[in-house]
Nucleic acid binder design. Structure first.
Lengths: 225, 225, 225, 225
DNA sequence: TATGAATGAGGCTTCATTCAT
DNA sequence: AATGAATGAAGCCTCATTCAT
């Protein structure tokens, strides 16, 4: 996503040579392609357009990614990685279960909201029946932590008598995802059909709190005061 | 547009029954186009492919719908109309607020689940920033009833002391939609990342009930036993 | 998807044994290129493909052979040299003219049959109007012995009253070549049009003998018994 | 091959409308493509080049032939058909076996010589392992008459005691083909290696007679005087 | 109302080759 | 002697759309 800086190869030495910078070229292509794909979809995007916005040539796209599909695949992987990396900022271990859950929900809501490109990419991937995700070994591994994070909070809450038993952590995650995702994915149609009040700054703040409430109520053993 | 009178409906000559049947041709094109668009997206669909699966020719698509965008527009409108028509089956007036709400949620969940083509079309329209919906006078009018239906239930529940005050009907609708929509729209990626258990028959039954619970808990003044 | 040619992933690992062996590298390239050119033709072959099957890199092909044409030229020369070298095995000096001629024909037939790559290369060169042969000083010199060998046999036969006068040695060679060459060059189309019986082991044995008979009859002063 | 005249649809009425002339367009493309393919091979030919020499556009090539391979396939079929049609001129029924055979050989020799494009196409098809011939139902049927024609002559000759028994008609055909084909296919390389005397007008006349002699001697029960 | 023929613009991809190290 | 990165030109093919009948 952010790839304008120096190549992250780690060596530390290769100061801007601006030619012969494979990692830089690769990530520059990926950044541009992400924007284009998320904006126009897979078949709606033009390799020429992507190339033009790149600091290299069309040829390099094929050099590094083989073809359009290969590029999309890598863009998708990179996007998932970036987003999951972002989630690492969250540290909920020391919070009380209810607070932790609220934090998690609100964070997810905001995180999705701040990454509409990623959301759109996932929409597109779903339109394509998850074909590109299926081929990616990489991505699957990235996502298991999401569930365990919730599981930890949920178990703690159950032990403390705050949460009711019998709910699958994956179902909680599903619900958080659904609400946070839909908020971005369907904004356009929803606001046209039912007005845009939910999507201005104030509306989003309310919605975020409401969603957190909703999830907390969903798992709680009693009504919060 | 009304050219039904002349057609030799009835028995006897199976001579090109569908010829000279403008309305039939139109709706046949729309049906095929819906499938194609929902399967491959707008730019991913091919006019040639659509025409080939039609019982008429490519030229007729242009004759009736002008161009690809025009066709997509009509397909979208038709899809919304069809779906909203389906919702008319619902009769919740005589039910107690909680039951009515549960019915509504579960119905919406199932209804979306049974209309994946429509869901995909809406995803696609969102990818296109709602451009086609924006142009359609027709659709906006279709959707106001969804809110009033909820409003009716909610107000009844509030009056009865069952639901808490201060929740916007549109926000309730939003939440029901989000959960029902996401269940279809993101099935592919979600099941690949977190397993498919939520999506088999049993999983879906649980999910449906859970979602209804979740919404009811969200609006309730106390936690249901 | 998997882009064999271009991918920059290949580290180029294999530690050094063959390094610093110019002659080995050259002949390795030539061997691979022969296979490729004879299989796909000149424009049908890919430098990338050739390089990939080589134990060295694409750059070396250009280093040693200049360009694709230069490589083809050298491959052609090498192939002619190899084949003419093979013919040196033949020692017909001590045989009676008829036996010598039979030997020569049958040897040529088998020799061509065992070198289909060479035959295909010559076909390809003919498709290219002999342009590469024309540029090669080397090759022309290699081929004069073929004629003199026949001339020797033929003259001996004429002197012995076995062969009739007035036939050009080059015409005899032409006929032997034609039959031996066509047997390999047109196998595919001929067998598809007229069946493959002539090309199995037994068919080829018969054909070889038949061709020898034919040539002998052609030059004989009387009918062989 | 020759397709400059009006379309051979047979109606007789459609005088040059020069647009909307599918058969004319098709055959024009085929004629140009034959020239190009036979000159440069399959991968050596350029669709753009073919289109440019056509009276229509590149697009029509794809419209009628699908892709480059499809075009080559049809060109090959057309070429075989044309050549086999040309052979129908031959009427050997009333000739004595030896004369008939000589006629056949000399005709074949000349016919191949006058159709170098066809010969080159067959060379190219052989380079491609007969892949395109294999896919063609059409061609196989065209070629059976070649064998029966020889069979008829041969049987008559055997009955008359002029030809020896035990030779397969297909083997005779094979030999005639080989000599006539090689004369065109390998002219370039052969003349460079062994001089061009066999290929000027006089040389070809001699060669034609010599080949006929050779075939006749091959099948004869005694040596002709 | 209907259809097969035709099309220009532009899409994706591949090629042989050179550069910088 | 050897290599991975880079490239411009050109290749094949597809698209939505219009024409002529």
């Amino acid at each position: 996503m952010d790839s304008q800086q120096d190549s992250p190869t780690g060596k530390g030495s290769q100061r801007a040579r601006w030619k012969q910078d494979p990692e830089g070229v690769r990530s520059n292509i990926l950044a541009v392609a992400l924007k284009e794909f998320s904006e126009h979809g897979l078949s709606g995007s033009r390799i020429d357009e992507i190339a033009a916005k790149t600091r290299t040539s069309k040829r390099m796209i094929y050099y590094y990614f083989g073809d359009k599909d290969g590029l999309f695949q890598k863009v998708l992987e990179e996007a998932y990685r970036h987003v999951r990396d972002g989630e690492k900022e969250l540290h909920l271990e020391d919070l009380a279960p209810v607070d932790a859950l609220r934090q998690l929900v609100e964070f997810t809501f905001e995180h999705h909201r701040r990454n509409p490109d990623f959301i759109r990419l996932v929409m597109i991937e779903n339109i394509h029946n998850g074909d590109y995700l299926r081929k990616s070994e990489l991505i699957r591994s990235l996502n298991q932590t999401a569930i365990s994070r919730i599981e930890a909070i949920y178990n703690k809450g159950v032990e403390a008598g705050l949460f009711r038993k019998g709910i699958l952590p994956v179902a909680i995650h599903w619900q958080i995802s659904a609400l946070s995702f839909f908020n971005v994915s369907n904004r356009m149609t929803f606001s046209q059909l039912f007005g845009g009040d939910l999507f201005d700054e104030k509306g989003q703040d309310q919605l975020r709190r409401q969603i957190a409430d909703s999830i907390i109520r969903f798992v709680s053993s009693e009504t919060p005061a």
